[in-house]
Write a protein that binds this DNA or RNA. Structure first.
Lengths: 100, 100
DNA sequence: CGGTATCCCAATTGATACTG
DNA sequence: CAGTATCAATTGGGATACCG
């Protein structure tokens, strides 16, 4: 379920910001391609962890937020971030990511 | 770093049991192939999370345990397991795993 | 007992271009 | 703004057989 390379980061930003639009994700995760972002958002939605709300406006607006189930992941994401902050530098990195 | 499908489970068993031999992993995770188990153990070792000790005996014996760095992952693995125990059933599963 | 070596398929990820 | 479509490359994973 956490298979996706960016899912944890997506969830992290949702815990930080509550609600995010597609373009806001793009700003927060600049090195995720549009395709991958769409892809992972849809998978998270399919797993019932986030919700997607389309506002029929011009220009279009789509908002993502955590579902109740998604919110239960807080301890996991939190533990992951804590660990990353403390120890990620100890681990061999192949490439720098979009700083989460 | 958690890319591997079985890494979290490997770490979990090490937190449970302290030290494990190759064959003990196999018993605890029957549906991981020998190749994948070796593979993921080596990656964890390369990342400095576990150590591998070979005892030059007959029959051969190899023991795996957590390094100090590996032990710092306890909160993460713990949070993950807690979540799994509570909510994994809420999520669509494609296949059952080796029960962790 | 604790692995390696091969082969092969599936899934994931990425680059780029296009669209309502 | 928020996506799709298409193609290509890489990586992950499983089956099976063999080895010191």
């Amino acid at each position: 379920m956490f298979g996706g390379k960016w899912k944890a980061l997506i969830l992290y930003h949702l815990f930080e910001d509550g609600v995010l639009r597609f373009s806001e994700f793009r700003r927060r995760m600049p090195n995720v391609t549009q395709r991958m972002l769409t892809n992972q958002l849809r998978e998270l939605e399919a797993d019932g962890l986030i919700s997607r709300t389309v506002f029929p406006e011009v220009p279009p607006r789509v908002e993502y937020e955590l579902t109740d189930l998604g919110k239960t992941l807080k301890p996991v994401i939190h533990a992951l971030k804590e660990w990353g902050d403390k120890y990620a530098h100890s681990v061999t990195q192949k490439k720098e990511s979009s700083g989460g």
